[in-house]
């Protein structure tokens, strides 16, 4: 099992009110499996993605990443796990504006203190070899999202998490990006989770998990 959420609850306190963003959610994602999480706004799907991505710690329950329980780790250790085990594809790509395309990937290796930089191979694989020295604002939305996927693969992670990867793209480009993402997850035998509103891209997912009011209602 690559990623396991085990009875995860996330509670927010707002004055006297307590509110469960996630309520006893359990989920398993295997290597090579790509699941889509859908649900209305405020249903808890972003919270779930954040907990799966070690950006947020659960109020109760456990998160197992590649067999290791990461819930009790220090924030420094958790940052290290994110760097080594998790790849993120954010909404609107979230590339660093002042980095050229090749450096968008190299930064990951700089952070991991690795010497070898194989970013250009990945970018060639994604058909971006002509864009290595361009800044993000010189790229199209689809190209940016492809750079973001390449960046997520850079650290050879166990799981890839995508937060609304099609939000800033038109229908055709959105489909291309998700198709690419799904293909890479299969080829590289990663576990993939995608949060989306976009029903047109659900066909690329192996499983669709629907979440409402912090609970999984359909799997």
């Amino acid at each position: 099992m690559t990623l396991i959420l085990d009875h995860v609850t996330k509670t927010y306190t707002d004055g006297p009110n307590r509110f469960n963003a996630l309520d006893e959610v359990s989920l398993e994602v295997k290597s090579g499996e790509f699941i889509a999480i859908v649900g209305p706004s405020g249903s808890g799907k972003s919270t779930m993605l954040s907990i799966a991505g070690a950006l947020l710690s659960p109020t109760s329950g456990n998160v197992l990443l590649a067999g290791e329980n990461i819930t009790g780790l220090s924030s420094k250790e958790i940052t290290k796990r994110r760097l080594e085990k998790i790849g993120f594809v954010f909404q609107a790509a979230h590339l660093v504006p002042y980095l050229k395309v090749k450096d968008q990937l190299n930064i990951i290796q700089v952070l991991a203190k690795k010497r070898v930089k194989h970013g250009s191979d990945l970018l060639t694989h994604f058909g971006l070899q002509h864009r290595l020295n361009n800044y993000p604002n010189e790229l199209s939305g689809g190209q940016r999202q492809r750079v973001a996927i390449a960046r997520a693969l850079m650290n050879d992670p166990q799981i890839i998490l995508a937060d609304e990867p099609t939000a800033s793209l038109d229908s055709k480009r959105g489909q291309d990006v998700v198709k690419l993402l799904a293909g890479e997850i299969k080829d590289r035998n990663k576990a993939g989770i995608m949060v989306t509103h976009d029903e047109r891209v659900l066909s690329y997912a192996d499983r669709i998990v629907t979440i409402r009011d912090g609970k999984i209602v359909k799997d």
Partner: peptide
């Protein structure tokens, strides 16, 4: 700054 800010809508 919390890394959660990278995820839209997750920062409660």
């Amino acid at each position: 700054i919390d890394p959660i800010e990278a995820i839209e809508g997750a920062a409660a």
